[in-house]
Structures are given as C-alpha cells and as structure tokens.
C-alpha cells in the first residue's frame, strides 16, 4: 500500500485564466465537495506539494513562473491541466501574448476538460493523477535503490 496516494498535497497556479476554472477549483474545498476527505491539502508551497494544478493558459510572462514552481516541487509529482485554456489555450489561444496550453512549458499528466471544468471533473482528474503519482513514486523508489548512475 502506498501513502503517496493517500495524502496528495496540491498547489494551484492560475495562469492566464478567466477565473472561471479557479472558482471551480476553490469550490472543491467547500463543504459540498470537501477534497480534504481524500487527504488532499491545498498548500501554497511548491516544496510541500505533490500535485500541480494549473488553470488557464501559458503566456510569455507566466511561463518562467510555471517552470519555476514545477522545478521546486520534489519527485514524485504530477501536473494536472484544468480547463480547456490549460489544455490548449482555449478561447484565448489566438491572443498575441498566449503561448498555448500548459504542455508548452512543462509535461502535463492529466487534462481535465471543460469551460469551466466542473468540480466533479477536477476531483476526477486528481484521482486519475494519483494513479500516475503512484507509478512515479515506484520509479523514484527504484532509482533510489539502484543508487545514482
């Protein structure tokens, strides 16, 4: 049994979202959905986080920020792109400053569709992400056993 999937802490970053998806992410914390029942903690600190939840698209200004947050997170980690904007740029994709989906700068593991993504869909996406997190944890464990190459 793995404890990683029982205590996923997540950090939420708002790219150039219209705030629609962000409000849905926050809705997951409310008594109605209460993601803490899965042991999920919404943290503001990348160094404590296992799951990186991004809403909105990447633009020229936030690309370095996203890369930095991703870099500060410790392995194993999972990236979840929430909403169509985060997947492809959505309605904003033709804007002059928008680069596109999150996968333009960091590898994305799960895409949650929707505009805005519903809280149920977001929770579903996180649960999908947990399976990937578990696989990555096994990889980390294995590489730790084998030692540095």
């Amino acid at each position: 049994m793995s404890f990683t999937t029982r205590s996923p802490w997540l950090i939420h970053y708002d790219g150039s979202s219209c705030n629609g998806c962000d409000i849905e992410v926050l809705a997951c914390l409310t008594p109605m959905y209460d993601i803490e029942r899965f042991g999920i903690i919404h943290t503001g600190n990348p160094k404590h986080a296992d799951i990186f939840l991004v809403t909105g698209s990447v633009n020229e200004q936030n690309a370095p920020v996203i890369k930095q947050i991703y870099g500060e997170m410790l392995e194993p980690k999972v990236v979840i792109a929430v909403g169509i904007c985060a997947a492809s740029g959505g309605v904003f994709r033709r804007c002059y400053n928008v680069m596109g989906g999150i996968d333009k700068v960091i590898p994305v593991d799960v895409y949650v569709p929707g505009c805005a993504a519903r809280p149920e869909a977001i929770i579903d996406g996180v649960v999908k992400g947990l399976e990937i997190l578990e696989r990555k944890r096994e990889d980390v464990e294995r590489s730790r056993k084998e030692g540095p190459k």
């Binding site: 793995s2 404890f3 996923p8 194993p76 980390v140 464990e141």
Partner: peptide
Amino acid sequence: YDVRKLMSKERS
C-alpha cells in the same frame, strides 16, 4: 499517511 508520504519523497 502524511508523514509516511513525506518520507517517500525525493531527498533534497
């Protein structure tokens, strides 16, 4: 669970 998870994270 939290502490066990933290123990299994990358060392850094």
